[in-house]
Design a protein around this nucleic acid. Sequence first.
DNA 1: GCTTGTTAGTTACAAAAACAACTATTATTC
DNA 2: GAATAATAGTTGTTTTTGTAACTAACAAGC
Lengths: 150, 150
Amino acid sequence: MTNDDSDKKDDFELQHFLPFLLNQAAEESSLDFQRVYKNRYGMLRTEWRVLFHLGVFGQMTAKEIGARAKIHKTKISRAVRKLEQRRYLTRTRHQDDRRVEWLTLTPAGKTVYHELRGIAEQYDAKLANLFSTDEAALLRRMLRRLAAMD
Amino acid sequence: MTNDDSDKKDDFELQHFLPFLLNQAAEESSLDFQRVYKNRYGMLRTEWRVLFHLGVFGQMTAKEIGARAKIHKTKISRAVRKLEQRRYLTRTRHQDDRRVEWLTLTPAGKTVYHELRGIAEQYDAKLANLFSTDEAALLRRMLRRLAAMD
DNA sequence: GCTTGTTAGTTACAAAAACAACTATTATTC
DNA sequence: GAATAATAGTTGTTTTTGTAACTAACAAGC
């Protein structure tokens, strides 16, 4: 215990604490976009993330998606089931290793992906527009560094 | 639909999408610290946030904490109850408006706050150390801007 | 001063997340 | 090649969150 016990205002600045700031910014920056995939497409965050990964990378396995986006396998499993029920993706067993299944977007899934992708790009541009081009680029680099994706 | 329907890799860069990057960075950057207040003090994120607010600002109401940290009142309510059960804070009814209650840390609560605060400061320094001083300052400014806390 | 509206905080119920245990299949080892 | 371990994915149970409805106290209008 390094401080006195009075009831006075302390000098630690919570809004300087990086994990707090990152969480606030992340939450706020997801809100508008979340509304789109949630209200318009009835999707959860994990679901659109899976959808996006498949849209971007084509055929993938659940495990690959989980590793890349750091999502737990049970969340992936349930998201995949939902997306399958909505006919946005199909599964096919891997021939050589029948534990594995390849996930692929259906045409309907691709349509939704492209729609959401367009909205995502616009939204990203809107956010990046708060800063100069250089600043935005630096921000992305720093975030990737913090997420250890570099 | 702006793209073709092939199964090839798409060119949208998920790891460039700001909400995604922010979420990854926020999650990753919270992990180590979360382990401390979770495993060592049995606290949830909302609980330590409430604790920190009280530690920093002294006496506050649930509403004030919620407004400042953008936490929903039901979450605050539950966190306050937990912290009260652990004897980290006490409530006293406001005289002039008996709907309101002032929250204050107990000595035990203050002790925990100071311990966690020290760890938080170290941890923040470790994160900020990934960047130059200027970069770190810019990062915080940008995050505050994104969270619209400016 | 009584009806109507607001506000601070709580509670109840539904949705989602976390964690552990499970099945089915492949890999390893003796 | 049978026994054991490891892996991909699923299912079940417990926590935690989100949402809406609630209580108690105050405020405003008439």
